[in-house]
């Protein structure tokens, strides 16, 4: 899927973000090609979530640029990037707790279906929004839980719902921040199977600690350490990269052992 001749869907150049004395994103450049599943790994504190937040617009970089689908989106607010086709899931589940599962998804579909300054008609009776929400729920296997309030869903179901919400915005690029976090073995396996299907339809940037999943899924892997890219290559090359092994120290065995 990696096509070096094509323009990247996402191009990050010389991104810098500091928090006080700490440089969480350190002159970071990154290209994500259309159609690839690009994993970002790195030890705790490597600045993965900080990077995702800058890509989606929740956090402004100190310097550097972000181009998405050929446009400079560096200064665009989060809601506008979402409209351009950039969707994210959150590392710590971030849903609408007072809403039912289907309402969570339907409102995401609503955000990308005309304007919402409509004050009179019952939004829950807009068939096309409900259908779009139902099909996103079906994709992640939550169709039977559509009317359950989010607060009553299990953690695993909430992770799946995060994904359904992102899918309902019909994204070109899906940024997934540790979708397996806190999932059990079977739940993780289901999530991997799901991502395997999704990658055929949408470009994905996957931040994940589960190395087994990363090496099974990724076309390319970028390794972050202290906010810097120390390697960016196909999984096999990353596995044998000396610098990556050094950075992970003990963790290198995890990397090698699981694959």
């Amino acid at each position: 899927m990696v096509d070096s001749l094509a323009d990247p869907l996402l191009r990050v150049e010389k991104l810098v973000r500091r928090f006080g004395g700490i440089t969480a994103t350190d002159n970071l450049s990154l290209d994500v090609m259309s159609g690839e599943l690009h994993a970002i790994i790195g030890p705790n504190g490597a600045g993965k979530t900080t990077l995702i937040s800058q890509l989606t617009g929740q956090l402004a970089p100190n310097s550097g640029t972000i181009h998405f689908a050929g446009r400079d989106v560096t200064r665009q607010p989060a809601y506008r990037r979402s409209r351009l086709g950039l969707a994210r899931s959150f590392q710590i589940t971030s849903l609408l707790p007072d809403f039912s599962a289907i309402d969570n998804v339907a409102i995401a579909a609503q955000a990308h279906d005309g304007h919402s300054f409509r004050f009179w008609g019952n939004a829950r009776k807009e068939i096309h929004l409900r259908d779009a929400a139902r099909s996103a729920l079906t994709r992640v296997g939550l169709e039977a839980r559509a009317d359950v309030p989010v607060s009553e869903l299990s953690h695993g179901e909430q992770r799946e719902l995060e994904l359904a919400v992102a899918l309902a915005t019909k994204p070109q690029l899906l940024l997934l921040d540790e979708p397996m976090a806190g999932l059990g073995v079977t739940e993780s396996a289901r999530m991997v199977a799901l991502l395997k299907e999704l990658r055929r339809e949408v470009t994905i940037v996957l931040v994940e600690h589960d190395m087994e999943a990363v090496f099974a899924l990724a076309d390319r892997i970028t390794v972050l350490v202290y906010g810097r890219v120390i390697a960016c290559d196909v999984p096999d090359a990353i596995r044998n990269n000396e610098e990556v092994k050094r950075a992970y120290l003990g963790d290198q065995h995890v990397v090698v052992a699981h694959v």
Binding site: G57, A78, L95, L96, I107, R118, F119, A123
Partner: peptide, 20 residues
């Protein structure tokens, strides 16, 4: 309405609403 759901969504989780 659509508008009302958005307002309630923002009450519930503003960051999430911006993100979608």
């Amino acid at each position: 309405s659509r508008f009302g759901l958005v307002v309630q969504g923002v009450r519930s989780n503003e960051q999430r609403m911006q993100a979608i």
